[in-house]
Every structure is written in C-alpha cells, then in structure tokens.
Write a protein that binds this DNA or RNA. Structure first.
Lengths: 261, 261
DNA sequence: GGAGGATTACCATTGAGCGGGAATCCAGAG
DNA sequence: CTCTGGATTCCCGCTCAATGGTAATCCTCC
C-alpha cells in the first residue's frame, strides 16, 4: 500500500502521527513523535517537515511540534460536527441555565459515545465525559439512547458482544438490555443512576435529523442523590426537539415506538 | 515532491480534499470532490478510498462522502485548541450569563482572528463571527487586542501592508493604529464600535499563557446603541484573568505597558 | 432504451518516498 | 573546558506505490 517497506500508506502514517497527540500530549519533539508512532527516524522527520509545510503541524519556539491551527480549522469547518454543535449550543445553554450541572452532546461512533460538546463543569459532581472523549454505549445514558434508536441490525450485532459490567446497575444481559431499550424508546428518554460512576446519574434524550434517524444524544449529569431527577426530563426533551428542528427535523411520524433500519 | 506528474505531494492533496469541505458543503459525491479539488478523476477515487479506509472520510447512504468523525476526533483531541476552549468555556458561560449577547474566543492565525468558540447567538444583533471563521485583525476588537500584544516585529510587518477600510471607524493608518494599539495595551481592552458591521460593537480583552504571551482574545459583541458598553469591561477582564490563570498564567510582571518580543 | 453522469477496473510507467548511515548541532554533566 | 547522549539534518541509491490515462460498468432519470 505504499513505498514503505513496512507496507504502510502515507495516510496511515499521517493517522499515526496525529494520533500520537492527545489531550495530555499536545506537543512533543519530533524524536519523541517518532518513538510514539514507531516510525523510522528519517521518515518521521521528512513527513513532519511536509506537514509543517502545509501548516498541518506547527513548530513552537522550543522546537517541539503540535497540531496546527490550520488543521483544526479545516477539519472543524468541514465537519458535520460543527453544524450539529451550532444547532445544539443555544439549546444546551438554556438547559444548562436551568439544570445547573453538566450538559453534554454525544454522537454514536465506532460502537461508543463520542462527546462533541459539553457545558458546565460542576466540579462538585463526578463527570468523566470529556469533549472528544469516548465512553461505552451500554453504560451511559447517552449511549443507551443512541443505541435504542439505532437500526435493529446494529443493535443485534452490538448486543452479540460481551459487555463490561461497570457497576451493579449496568445491564449486560442482551435480553434485559433489549427490554430496557424498548422502554427508552417508549418513554423517550434514558435515565441511569450510577452507570459508570456510582455517584452520578445521567439522563439523556435523542436528537433527530430530517430523515428521522438519531443524530445525537442530549444529556445532563446530576448527582445521584437528587431524587427528582425525572423532573429534568421535560426540559431536556423540549431542548432536544428544538435542536432536532434546527437540524431540519419535522416532527415525528406517528407512534413513539419505532426502530428505523 | 510526489509521484504525481503535477508535482504535488500526497499531503498537499489531502489538504485540497479536506479544504473542499466547508460549512456550506459538508458532503458531496466523489466526482464533485474531484471537480472542486481539480484532481484527476482516478486519483481522487483512489485517494478517497484510502481515506475512507482510515475512516478519515465517511461514506453516507446516498454515496456522498463527508469528513469522518474519526478525523474530527483525532484533530480535536490532539489540538491545543481543545485545552484553550475547555479552560475558557466556564468563564465564557459566566460572561454570557451576565452580558446576554454574544461571547467569543478568538486566536491569532495567519494574520487573522480565528474564532474557536462562541456562545450566545442573539439574532437581534448582527454578529458575523462564526466558529472556525476568520476576520481581519485590524477590523475587530479581538484582532486589535491580539495585535496589540503581539511581538513588535510582527506588528511592524502587519502594519506595513495595505489595510482595508470597512467602515468609517476602521483605522488603517499605521501611525494611528500604532497609537491605538498602545492605548489598548494601556487600558487593557479594545472597544470598537461598528468596526466591520456598523450596527454592532465589540469589546475584547487579552488572555495570556504561562509565558505571559497572548493566547487568545475574549470578546463580547453588543448592539452599538448601548451606551454603557464600557460597563462590560470589568466582567470581561475578570473572566479573561480567570482563563489565563486556568492556562497556567501567574499574574502580570509589573507594568501594564509591555510588548513581548 | 438511451443519454449523461458517477463509479469501478485495468495497467504500463516512473519518480517520490523510503530508510540506513553518517555528520552535525546542542545542552547538560563533570 | 571537554565529554556525552540525544536530537536533528544531510546524503543517496533503490524500488514499488502512486499515478492517471482509457475503457468498461453501473446507475438514474427522462
């Protein structure tokens, strides 16, 4: 797939390089980058120079490099995430203003929830969601909502796998989960106390696109001891409908029970 | 620089492809992509397939392709923008809650302001800032703040160029601008009524990093007719200091007048 | 059914990418 | 001051992945 003796394409190496950076390692020397990626030294330097030339990477005074502003800009501007985010943000602000804890927006990707936006970082409660962070589908309220509204074939394949049990309340039994998903579709929201972290509790509702498929899950994380968590549902639902409409969604077809596929 | 007869590197083509997408064109057919990028048909298809393989691009049911979630994730997670954004967001929410109009966070890139975050889209006032959008340095309050705190050599090179006069109040005369920049450094904020759009007015303050250099500009856009716009300055400044501190900044050295270089 | 476009398949050509090795630069230790 | 280990740049011949024509195939919508 490439000139390389190792049989990697440039694209693959590009991915390796970009992947070497994360929230804990936003910049590093080229040598270290080479080590982290496992690429040959010379190759790393040449490739990095090409990327610097296109401003996809940037060199800082010390010599360390980091992901370039241009790269962030290009990807952000062209990605569908931006549209979703911009449609959602005003409504998320409203929710945040009322609920006061932590409001997140997540999408389904590679069998996980990928959080693309988050408002309110109330340090008093535990909340492990991070922007551009991932969590398992079956162990988060957002994930359950996304799964509940996914095509049946997808649900089947997902439920066929072994699922990790994080806490006592995490459902891992396929049949139980299936029943729970049906319930989520019926009620229109998922509320799971202490799914991953015992002390916090998540409530999530679906956001739909024009074709009536789920686009994202809007959720709030509240302390588990809050008994009236369910009182938050109407606010969330209203906001989610607002976001859906901003995305071009025109009301639901009829029943609330429906699995697109 | 590449196998291509046209002398382009793969990286360059990659950039072309990603650049073909923007907020108005988040998805398109491969053929159209080929047209927009100007790349040979076959090449486009092959390259797109490689990118699909790495999930940097994604194919949607209709056959159209768009920027992949994975790409967004990798870049977002590894970019320094995320850290800045996360440090700033809580403070921006506070500002937004008080000021009620539109709060933005912008960084300096390629002689322009690049807006990386924005809260509050009050439709009652005109505000052309968009996330991942750009505006000229000398015609926005954010840009002026960023410019005012940039290295002297950079200011010189920037001021040497011809500058567009957007409205009556846009300063384009180097000497005038220089005086204005000094004033901005002295007062600690920039306030320009109707710099690009006559009806709105922007106020911006600098955000500093640990090394005492500007990292970003925090700003609010308010209707121009609001006379007490200056009353917003303290709130903004407090927030900006909070963000700076969250970034690792430890107070200013001494005087307020200083140009790093 | 056929016209126009999008997409895939095929394939000979070639220079961009490759990566080992050595030279150079640089900072901190002694 | 030298020494040392790492980072970075230079050099260079090999080679196969990428290239991009042409042509076949697949769709759709008249």
């Amino acid at each position: 797939m490439a000139n390389s003796t190792s049989g990697e394409s440039i694209i693959g190496r590009f991915v390796k390089i970009v992947s070497a950076f994360d929230d804990r390692h936003t910049s590093m020397s080229v040598a270290e980058l080479g080590r982290r990626t496992g690429l040959p030294v010379t190759t790393t330097y040449r490739l990095v120079n090409d990327l610097l030339g296109e401003r996809l990477l940037e060199r800082e005074p010390g010599g360390d490099i980091h992901i370039g502003t241009r790269m962030w800009e290009l990807v952000s501007r062209g990605s569908k995430m931006l549209g979703l985010r911009e449609a959602a943000l005003p409504f998320m602000e409203d929710v945040q203003a009322v609920v006061q804890h932590s409001t997140t927006l997540g999408v389904l990707d590679s069998d996980e929830v990928l959080y693309i936006e988050r408002l309110g970082s109330d340090k008093t409660i535990v909340d492990i969601t991070k922007i551009a962070g991932r969590l398992p589908l079956h162990a988060t309220s957002s994930g359950l909502v996304l799964l509940a509204h996914s095509p049946a074939v997808y649900q089947d394949s997902f439920l066929a796998r072994p699922l990790t049990k994080f806490t006592e309340t995490t459902l891992t039994e396929p049949s139980q989960l299936r029943r729970h998903l049906a319930e989520i579709r019926q009620r229109g929201f998922a509320a799971m106390p202490g799914v991953i972290v015992p002390e916090s509790s998540g409530i999530a509702v679906p956001v739909f696109g024009p074709d009536n498929t789920v686009r994202a899950a809007l959720s709030v994380v509240v302390p588990r001891n809050e008994e009236n968590a369910a009182a938050r549902v109407p606010v969330l639902m209203a906001a989610a409908r607002g976001i859906s409409r901003a995305l071009g969604w025109r009301g639901e077809l009829k029943g609330t029970l429906r699995q697109s596929h």
